[in-house]
Design a protein around this nucleic acid. Sequence first.
DNA 1: CGTCCGGTGGGAAAAAGTGGGAACGAATGG
DNA 2: CCATTCGTTCCCACTTTTTCCCACCGGACG
Lengths: 151, 151
Amino acid sequence: MFRGANKVTLDSKGRLAVPTRYRERIVERSNGRLIATVDRQDRCLLIYPLPEWEEIELKLRRLPTLNPLARRLQRLMIGHATDLELDGNGRILIPPSLREYAGLTRTAMLIGQGNRFELWDEVQWNENREQWLKADETAEPLPPELGSLSL
Amino acid sequence: MFRGANKVTLDSKGRLAVPTRYRERIVERSNGRLIATVDRQDRCLLIYPLPEWEEIELKLRRLPTLNPLARRLQRLMIGHATDLELDGNGRILIPPSLREYAGLTRTAMLIGQGNRFELWDEVQWNENREQWLKADETAEPLPPELGSLSL
DNA sequence: CGTCCGGTGGGAAAAAGTGGGAACGAATGG
DNA sequence: CCATTCGTTCCCACTTTTTCCCACCGGACG
């Protein structure tokens, strides 16, 4: 499982050095093969080990093609899914189109989220984090799925 | 399976270089033979390896001929289906009528969608993508098939 | 203080993408 | 029926991009 927030840098060619503590796990789980795609609701990227992604892709592809909502989901997620591979230096190359989507500049945040990573531009990450903290203070009523959650 | 978004260019003769990462798969799946046809709801083209298309054509032809909707589908999809072949340089030639239908200019987007590709004019792809993202934010009620999807 | 390891940058070789030209074939008009 | 012209296809060569590899820098730890 992937955890933690890491400050990373994208060099001029779009390469990103994966923190060493994750590398071994990625190699043993998927032989270094990853998939990056876009997140629908936030301007960030989702990065999955290949086997994790394949499960999700299967679910997505089973959705009815004639349903416009399902079609949108497929176009966004499968349509942007890009193969990545760890190079000899433990780096991955983020293609320009995805960099652009997430507004990635030189410094980014790589966030462990269990079975995947999220990749944010550092500035956007910080802005969003502040908002989430503020939003929690206003203490909206919890939807029923969350009411029973014990942390 | 095909995934990912690729910026491609149509040259003055209407030729399109298929990104190399897909070529091998296309050749082994269908010996380089593809079918392009029109999409019903969006102004884009659908491109299938020949065997995939044959299954779809079969399904379409089984639809009740008396149903006007089915009739329309058949006429649009089967009626516009065109054979394409990878040439010696890994390019396919998009015929003028299909180019016109999809409003294709010089730069286009080739989108992997599992068993097929979608080919969009770049401008239209970007416009549509922004709309889909906006629409998702409004959080319409999800149809039951989608509610349980965990990404 | 030296060595090791992770991170970073750049350069060279290879591959992919792009454009143009020539040859072939079909179609049309004399 | 032949000749000319237009369109299509095939092939070659150039340019750009990508990928791979090596070397350096800086910090951490012994």
